[in-house]
């Protein structure tokens, strides 16, 4: 039984990761052929570093990822704060509304943004790409900041006011440190999703502006070159590392709060039993 269980999960992982393993392995292939192994080599990574198109696309990707993540983090955090102070019914409604774009297929988001840009007369280019990324990143920031706000003792802001801090100061000294893990996670998630995105970028970037994923796509249309393997491997590793960071941080956060929760609540449980 144990062997069967192991074999089953082994098979699942094989199916999930075999393509990526093959991709990464062939990115180190010395030969140009896609089928035969020609010895270990960094030559495709080297030629990648000399490809001006790719370097340009890399620059675009990083700038869009960082800029859109920063803007989305600010807007998303502000939105989460606003929703936190709404009446419960309204807050739930708003949360569901923010969920919608998350569930919306990328292709629908991409096309609808494209139509909107054409409709209001925004020229496609770098700024339309940036706006699109900010748009789809905001919900993820809201969704990672909101739980932090919910778990917060609602009196700590008042406690800071009580101790002489003005509202702005109380916000930055007490609320921000409390929700910072959520803000950082939202930011990292936004960076990841922005690097990751192809479909929405494809519709909103316009001619002349391309991101890494768009470049990979247009190179692949002319035939898969080994450089693409190298580029895809790098993107995979970067996104993987970012996601790992997000998950480890989130896990740590849950553990820490579970601990606080148990400690501050157990005396109450005790006293209610005594009555």
């Amino acid at each position: 039984m144990k062997v069967l269980k192991g074999a089953y999960s082994g098979l699942i992982f094989l199916f999930l990761y075999a393509p990526i393993v093959v991709l990464i392995a062939f990115s180190f292939n010395g030969a140009k052929s896609r089928g035969a192994w020609g010895g270990f080599s960094f030559r495709w990574y080297e030629s990648l570093a000399q490809n001006a198109d790719i370097l340009h696309a890399l620059r675009n990707t990083l700038i869009v990822a960082l800029l859109s993540a920063v803007v989305a983090t600010i807007i998303g955090t502000a939105a989460a704060l606003g929703m936190h102070h709404m009446r419960r019914g309204l807050a739930n409604f708003m949360l569901n509304v923010t969920y919608l774009p998350v569930l919306n297929p990328d292709i629908v988001t991409g096309i609808s943004l494209l139509i909107l840009y054409v409709f209001i007369g925004i020229n496609l280019g770098f700024s339309s790409l940036l706006l699109a990324h900010i748009t789809f990143n905001i919900p993820y920031v809201i969704l990672s900041v909101s739980p932090r706000l919910k778990g917060m003792n609602r009196h700590i802001f008042e406690a800071a006011l009580d101790l002489g801090a003005g509202p702005v100061r109380a916000f930055f000294k007490v609320i921000v440190p409390e929700i910072l893990p959520g803000i950082v996670n939202g930011f990292l998630l936004a960076v990841t999703l922005s690097i990751d995105d192809f479909v929405i970028s494809f519709f909103t970037a316009g001619p002349g502006v391309s991101t890494l994923s768009i470049t990979v796509y247009s190179m692949a249309r002319k035939g898969i070159k080994p450089e693409i393997n190298a580029l895809s491997s790098i993107m995979f590793v970067v996104v993987l590392l970012l996601l790992l960071t997000v998950n480890i941080r989130a896990g740590r956060d849950i553990r820490r709060r579970a601990q606080t929760h148990v400690r501050s609540h157990s005396p109450r449980a005790l006293s209610s039993r005594e009555h």
């Binding site: 406690a159 009580d162 101790l163 801090a165 109380a170 007490v174 440190p177 501050s264």
Partner: peptide
């Protein structure tokens, strides 16, 4: 509240975590 010579001990303490 931040200009009153009054301080509060809150229900459930409200310490800064």
């Amino acid at each position: 509240p931040y200009r009153r010579r009054v301080n509060t001990v809150f229900q459930r303490y409200a310490l800064f975590p």
